[in-house]
């Protein structure tokens, strides 16, 4: 219930109007949204019970490792049941396959649709979505870890919350199924990071400083 309460209000996209090139405009709008989502995500992380008690080094490495996974949980959740298989990056930024392809994001589209279908088939509850998002952040394989015991405790508490929730609704297999969906999330986030790094490196799409810093940490 704490995670449900701290879930941030979805952001709206600010339409970029610096260029007449439609695809570039889409990309710039998307990257601006992503940068602002990151800011919100960092504020959100601090409110997850146990996160602020971690050392600064561990907080940084968890965020540097799990930020894209946590953000994509939101995109996949919002995109469920969309007509035309659009991806809902924001209420006012919905991209279909053709738009993504034109913007050079065909690979990202395919990966994110796959994740969205998976979540849709699992019929996730809002409680499961917020817990999955927090677990994506906690489940980093980042190395070295400053204080492994504290990170472990942070993970255990989220796991315990999920188990308690699933037991309360007599779903004995759900917690395991959700954990088993984390590899697909990691894989999707890796593809997303690659897509944005390529935009920056090969097509010279300018990125905001925070987004660039977080992408660089993954490069």
């Amino acid at each position: 219930s704490h995670l449900l309460l701290t879930e941030p209000t979805p952001l709206a996209a600010n339409q970029d109007d610096s260029t007449n090139d439609g695809s570039l405009r889409t990309l710039l709008t998307l990257c601006d949204l992503l940068n602002r989502e990151l800011l919100v995500l960092i504020g959100w992380a601090k409110q997850i019970p146990g996160f602020s008690g971690l050392s600064l080094v561990d907080q940084m490495s968890l965020l540097q490792s799990g930020w894209m996974e946590a953000l994509l949980v939101g995109v996949a959740w919002r995109s469920q049941g969309m007509p035309g298989e659009e991806l809902v990056f924001a209420g006012n930024l919905r991209l279909d396959e053709a738009q993504c392809r034109a913007a050079g994001l065909a690979d990202l589209y395919e990966a994110l649709r796959h994740l969205t279908s998976k979540y849709q088939a699992m019929n996730l509850t809002p409680e499961e979505v917020v817990t999955l998002k927090a677990m994506a952040l906690a489940n980093s394989d980042a190395d070295p870890v400053d204080c492994p015991d504290s990170v472990q405790r942070f993970q255990d508490e989220l796991h315990e919350a999920l188990q308690e929730y699933e037991l309360s609704r007599r779903e004995q297999h759900r917690a395991g199924r959700l954990l088993m969906s984390l590899p697909l999330l990691r894989q999707t986030a890796d593809r997303a990071v690659q897509a944005f790094l390529q935009l920056h490196r090969h097509r010279c799409v300018p990125l905001h400083k925070l987004l660039l810093e977080m992408l660089d940490a993954k490069a």
Partner: peptide, 15 residues
């Protein structure tokens, strides 16, 4: 740490 300046600053700021 210099490389991750913004994240470092954002985490140090109080909520």
């Amino acid at each position: 740490k210099e490389k991750h300046k913004i994240l470092h600053q954002l985490l140090q700021n109080s909520t």
